[in-house]
Write a protein that binds this DNA or RNA. Structure first.
Lengths: 192, 192
DNA sequence: GTGGCGATGTATCGGCCCGATACATCGTGG
DNA sequence: CCACGATGTATCGGGCCGATACATCGCCAC
């Protein structure tokens, strides 16, 4: 999952670890807590070993002057781009859980409409199941559970209902073409 | 975190693993996906090693007849109850993240009012910070992010605002004593 | 009656990810 | 001139997950 997110961000621009972590945090918003370095660096090593990203130590225009030391800039490779496309297109069950869906959604601008629809519908189904489970509990176990636990269920149920409505709206928009412009062309690298 | 949840459930009634997992799933509702056995059994071993729960193989009234085999019933010990009380009362930063808060809230019926208030307020603060972060991003980075990413942030922001309102309401109730009856007496063991 | 099948039940393993920790450099302001 | 906060890379122990394996129980179809 993190692999997909990293590849996606590096597709937009090369970056070093610290920067990557911040971009990750803003791009993924609420759906995932800020990634820890204890996760990030090992993952970057893994991606490098797999040949999907390259690690380069940038030596400023004049090495002796601009030597910022340690900074390692990661850049996606051609194989990495293929890998990213594969991950983006696949729609397994893990695509519909909270983390998986969030990451996929964050890169919808690079996903084709058919896949977007499949993911949105899969996610809706998943949330509907969760919602039904909660309704079940609230209907059957009102006496077995204390007031706080019930309140927790009620709040969870409300969140599910709201998310389903949100997904419905997104699906409708996708179908009617009123969706946000996907901009399928690669992002121009941002200046840094 | 899982430790707290297990101890809490076993405080209500002795159980074997399978049952525990189901109770865990309903009690914790949305806030935590169903716990995996790959987590549950090692954790139970850990709790047993620490002396907080006991493992017993129940031999039916007449062993040869009712032998259901393997089933291991876990029961909380006196030390376990102390441990549970300690965990319930402590309010570190991990008490305010999604998982931690959910588990603590689920056992609010066994928590004293002062602690409940502290936790609710800590949680509110945490969510308010998250909310401010999202507002920041939405205000400053509208041009840097694509429409889908923005929609994700917007949706996250809405969820934060709603959760803050929910917490406000709970806090008000706690302060005015209109909160759900805490029922501080130990649950009568359910028949099984 | 028996044979399969879904629910019940215990258990392990590889691997992802986290929090804590350590350490070095840079820019700024006291 | 030096202290401190932001920037930056890296490791380690441990919690938790999904996949997998395997055994039993109750029931229904054949």
């Amino acid at each position: 999952m993190l692999e997909l997110a990293i590849l996606g961000l590096l597709q937009e621009a090369p970056m070093h670890g610290y920067e990557l972590r911040k971009e990750l945090a803003t791009k993924l918003g609420t759906l995932r807590a800020a990634i820890s370095y204890g996760t990030l660096y090992p993952t970057l090593k893994r991606l490098h070993a797999a040949g999907w990203i390259s690690e380069t130590v940038p030596e400023g225009v004049v090495p002796a002057l601009t030597s910022r030391r340690g900074r390692i800039v990661y850049k996606i490779t051609a194989e990495g781009k293929e890998r990213f496309a594969d991950l983006l297109a696949q729609t397994g069950p893990e695509t519909y859980d909270d983390d998986g869906f969030g990451v996929h959604f964050a890169f919808f601008a690079r996903t084709d409409r058919a896949t977007r629809l499949r993911i949105l519908e899969g996610r809706r189904r998943r949330i509907e199941e969760r919602r039904e489970g909660l309704r079940e509990v609230l209907a059957r176990a009102t006496d077995r559970l204390d007031a706080y636990t019930l309140e927790l269920q009620r709040h969870g149920l409300e969140a599910c209902e709201r998310e389903v409505r949100w997904l419905e709206e997104l699906i409708t928009n996708e179908r009617s073409g009123r969706s946000p412009q996907p901009d399928p062309s690669p992002h121009p690298d941002r200046q840094r």
